[in-house]
Design a protein around this nucleic acid. Structure first.
Length: 684
RNA sequence: CGCGGGGUGGGGCAGCCGGUCAGCCCGCGAGGCUCAUAACCUCGAGGUCGCAGGUUCGAAUCCUGCCCCCGCAACCA
């Protein structure tokens, strides 16, 4: 019997659980249940990730303490997980005392190894909010290409990377004020010294999927690893570093340690020794994470564990991200669905089964398609699986299953023979394979029923034994399928066990090998209903409404006929006020596009010539290739910034800029004046 | 040239350590059955496996180049 400790990544205590999160928790929950069905000892540990600037600021805004905030959120998270039939052995918090103690232990080990040194870091400080600003909380003008409104670490226009201090005109996104540069001593961990170990661990031993190992080898491990800035100066919501007063561990230091802390809380409650789980090589540690946090879990985390003498993970299972209908989840499209919203409309079994049917153990992204999920659930779960019981159980409600298991042409034995293959598929997280194999069993079972026509047999009292035999076979085949799918569909397993007068908790992978004979069959009640399109639509609608901020709702209440989404303002908040003089510096002019052509080598640019009338022209490279064809622009009047500093671009000199709205991609909308405006006229 | 993944009948996918690998589910067409939650069974139409080269007796499967799509690079897993 293996002893296995499993974790999912800790959700950040700054927002609700949504369907994107659920890919991971459902995947993990299925894997854990499958391990137990195989007879292994397996505990599932998780917790809320509670530290960091974002939590501190949100609590501030809500007028509560961070502790109150994270307690509330933790309740919500746990309710969402329960609703989705995701069962943790313990769901802790990175703010627990046990977590702090473990941080201290690992920290002491890093110190002991001499891996920590101090370094002066200059960081932008928001004087209004009284806090240092993480890169993402600063926006400004790219120092390299002059693109405006770029985040503090890199420019998405020209791809340059820099530090926030390099930004021109930096603005704090928290307060809108101009931050000032301040120095602080940070604690750095020299992870480079562990590179040989990490290279060995990531490349050998099968701890990581191959593509992940390659990614790490090519991207991080081939060069010197940069020191890891592990501390943040006060004020910060987190744990103060014992030997460095005024400094706090960075949230990514204590987040994975939360796995240990949460285990310790569970152990204390259950009379277990936590070190047996984390320091005894007999225990296998399995982490499930999304590919976005690969870096932290495959480099820093093993390094920390290694130095502190903890068990290293046996395997880190990394999954892809969720897209909906082939696109990123979107609040405005109603696909940013919260777990709670889902549960108000739909059965968790649908999503569990659907994700299972899509998960192969690779890092490929998983797409949730609403047509697909309905077809799949209705066809597989209702049409094939549940229908099998539905069409036979009531025929033997009175007499139960046949006293000895009847001849079935080898169907049951064939199903039982797949136990190892299915168990192995679970082990490898290839749940898609599990569902394929089980549904193939369902096809054979339904065919069997068809061929033996119980509805004919029951009309002939002489053939009562045959009828009982056929239905006994069908129910046993059904039972086999349900046991195989029990990790994915725990509730259905429980209900089905009741139908068959069994206890689902007693089922193991061995149970599929012995058929029921001479047992009672209880009354059949509907085990699962079809997935209703209207429920899906209602869920999407509710999601859209939820994501409209208060302003939008007020507009509705006051009877406004234009309930425009608040999304654009959220995406790009209003800027600081400017004076009329500031505005006048920008010379906006009406212009006519008199030449428009593709720039074949450019991904985003079109080459335009603008006429301002009287023979004055401007050469422009505009980043609108993704939304416009040259021929559609020719002759159009547009608004341009006529006095923009010319800029040398890869394909030529750009002397002006045309005005357009929209987030980019296909959604770019070029501004036009009303008819009558003449090229060259100024915009006031 | 930032990194990673993918392009297989209308949709979603499996196969991809070279030789029953052209397969599964949905959808579609025809028929059957009527026990079942319009469910189940049978038959059928539909793909030169992104494109172009190469290796080989033989490639969806290996190699090279190209094209296209997606994700990550955000304290949203």
């Amino acid at each position: 019997m293996r002893k296995i400790l499993v974790t999912s990544a800790l959700p950040y205590a700054n927002g609700p659980i949504h369907i994107g999160h659920l890919v991971e928790y459902i995947q993990t929950d299925i894997w854990v249940r499958a391990q137990r069905l195989r007879g292994n000892r397996c505990i599932y540990i998780c917790a809320d990730d509670t530290h960091g600037t974002a939590i501190m600021i949100r609590a501030n805004k809500e007028g509560i303490t961070p502790e109150e905030l994270i307690a509330n959120v933790r309740e919500q998270h746990q309710a969402s997980f329960r609703g989705m039939d995701i069962e943790f052995d313990h769901y802790g918090s990175t703010n627990d005392a046990e977590s702090r103690e473990t941080c201290a232990e690992i920290w002491a080990a890093l110190r002991r190894e001499g891996l920590v040194h101090e370094k002066k870091i200059s960081q932008l400080f928001d004087t209004k909010e009284g806090t240092f600003l993480a890169d993402r909380f600063v926006k400004g003008t790219c120092p390299k290409c002059g693109a405006e409104d770029q985040y503090g670490d890199s420019c998405d226009k020209c791809g340059a990377t820099y530090t926030p201090a390099d930004l021109k005109n930096p603005v704090s996104t928290l307060s809108g004020t101009t931050p000032e540069l301040r120095d602080a001593e940070h604690l750095m961990v020299e992870i480079e010294r562990l590179r040989p170990f990490l290279t060995e661990w990531t490349q050998n031993g099968g701890h990581l999927q191959e593509e992940i190992a390659n990614y790490l080898a090519n991207f991080f491990l081939k060069d010197e690893l940069r020191d890891w800035d592990i501390s943040r100066p006060a004020p910060y919501f987190g744990f103060e570093i014992p030997d460095s007063p005024g400094n706090y561990w960075y949230v990514w230091f204590d987040a994975p340690i939360g796995y240990v802390g949460s285990t310790r809380v569970w152990c204390a409650k259950n009379g277990e020794n936590w070190e047996k789980w984390w320091k005894d090589p007999e225990t296998e540690i399995h982490h499930f994470i999304g590919k976005d946090i690969t870096y932290f879990h495959t480099l820093f985390w093993p390094a920390m564990l290694k130095v502190a003498g903890f068990n290293l993970p046996e395997k880190i299972h990394i999954h892809g991200m969720l897209t909906t209908n082939g696109e990123k989840m979107s609040k405005s499209k109603g696909t940013f669905i919260k777990a709670d919203t889902y549960l108000r409309h739909l059965d968790p079994a649908y999503l569990r089964y659907y994700f299972a049917s899509k998960l192969t153990g690779s890092v490929d992204d998983v797409d949730l398609n609403f047509t697909d999920i309905r077809d799949k659930v209705n066809a597989d779960l209702v049409g094939k699986l549940v229908n099998l019981a539905s069409r036979t159980a009531k025929f033997i409600r009175e007499q139960g299953t046949s006293a000895s298991y009847p001849e079935d042409g080898g169907l049951f034995a064939a199903g039982a023979a797949q136990a190892d293959e299915i168990a192995q598929a679970y082990e490898e997280c290839d749940f898609a394979k599990v569902t394929r194999l089980v549904m193939a069993l369902g096809d054979r079972a339904n065919k069997f029923v068809e061929e033996h026509a119980p509805w004919v047999l029951r009309k002939d009292p002489e053939r009562a034994q045959e009828l009982q035999d056929v239905c006994s076979v069908a129910l046993n085949l059904y039972r086999q399928m349900v046991i195989y799918l029990a990790p994915i569909l725990p509730k259905l397993a429980k209900q089905s066990a009741e139908l068959l007068n069994e206890n689902a908790a007693d089922w193991t992978f061995e149970s599929v090998k012995t058929p029921l004979a001479g047992t009672k069959v209880n009354e059949f009640t509907h085990l699962m209903t079809r997935m209703d399109e209207k429920a899906i639509e209602a869920m999407i609608e509710e999601t859209k409404i939820e994501n409209q901020p208060a302003e939008g709702q007020n507009a509705e209440e006051t009877g406004s006929q234009w309930d425009d989404s608040a999304q654009p303002l959220e995406d790009e908040p209003l800027d600081a006020l400017c004076t009329i003089d500031d505005f006048c510096k920008v010379d906006l002019r009406v212009a006519r596009i008199i030449m428009a052509e593709e720039v074949p080598e450019a991904r985003k640019l079109l080459h335009l010539t603008l006429s301002l009338g009287g023979g004055v022209t401007k050469n422009v490279f505009a980043g609108i290739k993704s939304a416009y064809k040259p021929e559609d622009l020719l002759g159009r009047l547009v608004v341009c910034v006529a006095n923009l500093q010319p800029r040398q671009m890869k394909f030529g000199l750009s002397e002006a800029m045309i005005c357009a709205a929209g987030p980019g991609g296909k959604d770019i909308f070029v501004l036009s004046p009303d008819s009558g405006a003449l090229p060259g006229q100024r915009i006031h």
